[in-house]
């Protein structure tokens, strides 16, 4: 059962990374236009070089 001493912090840490990523995406306004983002992936405008 000693392994719990590692596993629980590790699982909480990994979950915490997920939560931090969610906050980051929320702050980056990634949920403002879900429909547009779903369509934008189909456009090939910036396939060759990144948008300036």
């Amino acid at each position: 059962m000693e392994v719990l001493a590692f596993l629980i912090p590790v699982s909480l840490f990994l979950g915490g990374i997920g939560l931090a990523a969610f906050f980051w995406s929320l702050r980056g306004k990634q949920y403002d236009d879900p429909e547009g983002d779903a369509r934008r992936i189909l456009s090939d405008d910036w396939d060759d070089h990144p948008k300036p």
């Binding site: 403002d32 236009d33 879900p34 429909e35 547009g36 369509r39």
Partner: peptide, 11 residues
């Protein structure tokens, strides 16, 4: 005269 344009399809 336009610097950038961004479409929001949801709205």
């Amino acid at each position: 005269q336009v610097r950038s344009a961004r479409v929001n399809l949801t709205l």
